[in-house]
Design a protein around this nucleic acid. Structure first.
Lengths: 232, 232
DNA sequence: GACTTAATTATGTATATACATATGTGAATA
DNA sequence: TATTCACATATGTATATACATAATTAAGTC
């Protein structure tokens, strides 16, 4: 009998503890909301909130009429912040520099169209640029922007501001896909990132949509010293 | 005046729409809970729930007395499922195979101790194994397990079951750190993963703790064809 | 027995109300 | 002017109550 003062936090943490310490094993049907409410001396709504949070975190599974049980295969998931390059670099205490390499309206190659499920290959803006931390190459960005969705990008000035920074302010997205992989530096990438051709690089690829319409595809290449870290 | 039936979902989605469509620009102070409650014909508690969800998603910032405003720098974050190798491979429709390479109780090298903030280098179990998808090498795992925290691991049989699978069932963790990076395959890794030495590899590193006590450090190496994908 | 229907039950959501808490604002004070 | 303090106010949380909804169980029907 816990005689804590009622709070969805204390309840959540206590239940969480019972699961972590295997007092309630995976698969166990735990007491109903009413029962827990009585145990903790709280209202059912308060217990409900605690349980919903744990369910959302994936450590409980709830079903009407069937009750709440400890997740058998806790689909643990971790979060990572979607990096915005300037903040990422400045957050590490480095000075951020930016260099535009090229920006031209041109037809997109087949691969890019396929990746974005585009029917027409025209009306695409191809931007290449380099992001540096304390004057050292940090990320090479190769980006395609769909001018049919974001026509304003034609008039954007990418000389002083990176395309991501511009897009954040002008074209919000509703959906995104992130891919991370390892690759070997091409000759171009190698010279820009000051590594040797064939050296391993860390690649992030990002596609964003607004209501089903593809906005942009970004190919982001880091030297292999780069680390993506996240906590749970 | 929206004449929807009250529901925290409809309210949440409508507010979300107003922000996505830039009716409320970043930084805008949006109406208070009372006002929104009246607009939607709902109770304040219902509006509160909608607002809290949006705040949690990072698109609103709320402060007592100061009100709620559209986040200026929406700290968007994406989630990725913490992969469990067997499920990951079987989920792709491939057959999973497992091969234990070595398992021995030995002193941990300096690097490992430092990474885990360990004072004593003794009482560590070093396990090396290979995970395959359809008989093709998929991931090489090099893991250190802290026997001081998980003494049962001494009696675990890693011949038929991977250490991660065993740990999931025997040693829950409260905290974890994930690192992703690119690297070049060492001679060992290359021969095990059937790539050439120096070829790029995708590396995941995972450290887990239970209440501050380090449990395990896993070094997970994939051939460069590997992709880590996540959606938002 | 197979199928349909109704009752039961645990969770899901909405609401009014009350009080807690953080934090701007402005008044009172030094 | 600067500092302190009390007050106002928007959000945060808890509660009782009511009803909705999904899913299981039991009862009824052919």
């Amino acid at each position: 009998m816990t005689s804590q003062r009622a709070s969805f936090r204390t309840i959540r943490d206590e239940l969480s503890r019972r699961i972590a310490e295997r007092i309630w094993l995976p698969g166990t049907l735990i007491p109903g909301e009413e029962a827990l409410a009585e145990e903790f001396g709280a209202a059912r709504a308060t217990v409900n909130r605690a349980l919903q949070e744990l369910a959302r975190a994936g450590i409980l599974e709830r079903k009407r009429r069937a009750g709440t049980r400890v997740a058998l295969h806790p689909v643990r998931e971790a979060r990572f912040v979607i990096p915005r390059i300037r903040q990422e670099i400045e957050g590490r205490g480095s000075e951020y520099q930016y260099r535009l390499l090229s920006a031209e309206e041109t037809d997109a190659p087949e691969v890019i169209c396929a990746r974005l499920s585009l029917l027409s290959k025209s009306g695409m803006l191809h931007v290449r640029c380099l992001h540096l931390a304390d004057r050292v190459p940090y990320q090479y960005e190769d980006r395609w922007i769909n001018l049919n969705t974001v026509p304003d990008a034609r008039r954007a000035d990418f000389k002083s501001m990176g395309p991501n920074e511009w897009l954040v302010g002008h074209a919000p997205f509703s959906n995104a896909e992130f891919t991370f992989m390892a690759g070997a530096a091409s000759a171009d990438e190698a010279s820009l990132l000051q590594v040797r051709e064939g050296d391993p690089v860390f690649i992030g690829e990002r596609i964003t949509w607004m209501k089903g319409q593809p906005i942009t595809l970004a190919h982001l290449v880091h030297p292999s010293s780069h680390r993506m870290v996240t906590h749970l």
